[in-house]
Amino acid sequence: MSDGSTRSDGGVQSDRHEPELTRGPFQRWVQKSIKDPKRVYRAMFYVATLFFLVTTLFPFYFLLVLAVTPDTGSLAVLPQLSTLEFGVFLDVFDRINFLRYMLNSVVLALSTTAIVLFLASLAGYVFGRLEFPGRQPLMLLILAISYFPPAAFFVPLYQLFTGNVVNGLSLYNTPGAMILPFSSLFMPLSIFILTTFYGQIPDGLEDAARVEGTTRLGALFRVIVPLSAPGVATAGVLTFIAVYNEFFFSQLMNNGQPENWAPIVGGLLSLQRAGQFEVTYGVMAAGSIIAVIPVAILVVVAQEKIVSGLTSGALKE
């Protein structure tokens, strides 16, 4: 082999005898990688990262492009800057009461989060700190609820909330029609997270609180919850985001009017209708981007707590 590479006559080598001379950059890279597999892992890391960045960020980028391209203009992946109109973000608020929709969403998400955190704290305390027969089956049952498709609950709940089951009980077009199903659907995950956290608080601390003068409930909210702050934050943020992003009940449990507690999804659909007979992608896209902002801020602020809450959660005595 080595004699082949030193041939001076410039004759064409056959692959069978002298593979080295035909190697391109890729083959050389492969050769090095076989000696040093870390290069492959590094390359795979970049490929995977790039893939996820493109798949997650491209839709967002294109949403932006969609928003700022005038309805008369033509869409392009790389639009010309001179043709763009940024006034569309103000149009969103001019055409409909979009702020009210956002407020509705935030209020719905916050109330659901408060209800879920309170009830899940009680349940988490029971599942995490008390021994009783049937604890595991009950926990599994609660978790199983979160695996059900929400659509399965829709028809009975719709009948109930529109007053067709119990006379005089009509929750349709009220926040209750959304907060109730949201709370029950997102509760299991929070119970699960809080159970893990509350179970890790040393018994001695709870005993100390009870001897010092609290009830069991007092010990939960004065000692166990504050010490489980990362877990509570995680459960809270996940619930908030899940409710804020919810589509199914949000769209079906009201008639889409802001004064009837329709959340953002209702607002986006109104933006579509606001264009009468044309499809107004521009304002809808702009509305979507505005709607993302509260969640984006929340995630940035709470990111550290969520990460620490999801990964560790251990508290040392």
Partner: peptide, 20 residues
Amino acid sequence: LPPKDRGISMVFQNIALFPH
């Protein structure tokens, strides 16, 4: 009676100060 109504106080083996 629950612990809080017994007129007692207690020092624990693992000390059990509230860390927060």
